[in-house]
Nucleic acid binder design. Structure first.
Length: 112
DNA sequence: AGACTGACGGACC
DNA sequence: AGGTCCGCCAGTC
């Protein structure tokens, strides 16, 4: 599965970013956002790890790494809005394996 | 096997 | 904007 995640990540074009959740779905495992992060962290495969941010473009990294990621992204032309990325301009949408692309999740949990 | 943990996400408060 | 909770998945202890 790491393979699919990696593949998904590699399709994020330069200057764009994506979220863990999106990657997870693109990899075929919706809900495995954590796994994506984990995999990313354990695969220094020369992956564009800096292009992966949290939901809403938030950088969920810790201190130092977060800073580096931000620099890298800015170097690719990604702009920031405070501590998060301008998703409106840089979010990369993966082609849905299915039907149209209504919206991401179909709001479910009517509350836990 | 069970519990904890992590670069998460989304809903609530 | 910030904090809490529950749900997810895989790796470690």
């Amino acid at each position: 599965m790491r393979d699919r995640i990696v593949k998904a990540i590699r399709m994020v074009p330069r200057g764009h970013v994506s979220s863990y959740g999106s990657i997870a779905r693109a990899a075929g495992s919706p809900g495995a956002a954590r796994q994506v992060a984990w995999t990313l962290h354990s695969s220094p495969f020369g992956l564009p790890w800096h292009r992966i941010v949290g939901a809403g473009g938030e950088i969920k990294l810790r201190g130092d790494s977060a800073f580096e990621q931000r620099l890298r992204l800015e170097a690719e032309g990604v702009t920031f809005r405070g501590r998060r990325v301008n998703m409106r301009l840089h979010e990369f949408r993966f082609p849905r394996p299915n039907k149209n692309s209504p919206r991401k999740k179909v709001r479910k949990t009517t509350r836990k």
